[in-house]
Design a protein around this nucleic acid. Structure first.
Lengths: 191, 191
DNA sequence: AGCGCTATCTACCAAACGGTAGATAACCTA
DNA sequence: TAGGTTATCTACCGTTTGGTAGATAGCGCT
């Protein structure tokens, strides 16, 4: 991935992006607590000190990783989610969202692993996930408002199912994520 | 919980149980990677060396915690799950299971936090969870076999929903676990 | 070609880590 | 009440950790 003996000097933005990409994959695999500063550095062929030139601390790197995920993932969906349509449209949008996640495995895994690890109030990403998930739920609730009898409860249920399915899928790749989703959706969107 | 200045000598079994109980709660709060040997020891008012008299290493302590959970949780349910009855009975049994979990918050949290952390193949509890969850799924599948059109798929769906709901409930206590379960069950057991 | 900027490195540090060796003291029994 | 058993402690070790200070070298500009 990043061999390159000796010194490899890159422009700022490029190196930053390389570090973030590598860090995302490492955290997805082992959680944030499970990866050392040196491991982050090694993964892009540099030293700890070199990495700390771009991110002032290990914790700041984590925050940057999360912000990058937001840019890549959330915004693209948020725009689409503004109207509150009928069940069929809602289902189609959600299915598209699921499909897209399937092509971004390491980002999904990052999110799943980290969000569980960050249940600890002492974790540096604790408040990030607390507010992040509350907002996500509220957004989904508004989206279901027009047609679902209990939009609040339904939002929790939908997100819980997706979180749990992701977790199980990550542990056992033989699970057919899309088929499971369709089966759930058949009942969920039938009201 | 365990103040006691100075030396507090306990019989073997009693001290072991105290350590396991404390460790369960610490791991539930911060994961296994998030708790140091000294923190485990402090939690029951002793030193690292004292604790290592009972468990030869930090990793052995983790295994003991998991085995203890199995004794407390699984066996009691496994016996009941032998027959494969009608939907109404299945739902009643599952609801009882959910209810019982609600009274054992720290054990549920231990399991949830640790099972996510152990997605990493390098984690000491990796294979424990891999086999443990596969068996659980198979068991549930046999249980649904008699009346559900797709027992395998349904087992995955049910476990995924419960896992995800636990995760969200742990992050946000305002979620009404039981109500969410009933709402899901209304559709799940209607076939 | 040479110079400045800065991305990267080497070398180092104090603290925290998991674990070991041997001393000490609390309880049980005779 | 003396003595043995062993649960617990004090003191220490080697390694790894996140982070710092100052030297070095690659690149763009004139």
């Amino acid at each position: 991935m990043a061999p390159a003996r000796g010194r490899r000097r890159l422009p700022l933005a490029e190196r930053r992006e390389e570090i973030l990409r590598a860090a995302t994959e490492l955290i997805a695999a082992s959680g944030f607590k499970g990866v050392t500063l040196e491991a982050f550095a090694d993964a892009c062929g540099m030293t700890k000190a070199g990495l700390l030139h771009h991110f002032r601390s290990r914790e700041e790197l984590l925050i940057a990783v999360l912000e990058r995920r937001d840019e890549l993932d959330l915004t693209s969906v948020a725009d689409v989610l503004e109207p509150a349509p009928d069940p069929a449209t809602a289902r189609a949008v959600m299915t598209a969202f699921v499909r897209r996640n399937l092509t971004q495995r390491s980002l999904v895994q990052l999110y799943t692993v980290l969000s569980a690890e960050a249940l600890d109030p002492g974790h540096p990403a604790y408040s990030y996930f607390a507010t992040r998930l509350r907002e996500g739920r509220a957004m989904l609730e508004r989206y279901l408002l027009a047609w679902h009898p209990r939009p609040g409860q339904a939002a929790v249920e939908l997100l819980a199912f997706l979180d749990g399915l992701q977790l199980n899928w990550l542990r056992d790749e033989s699970i057919d994520f899309l088929a499971q989703w369709e089966s759930f959706a058949d009942r969920f969107f039938a009201v």
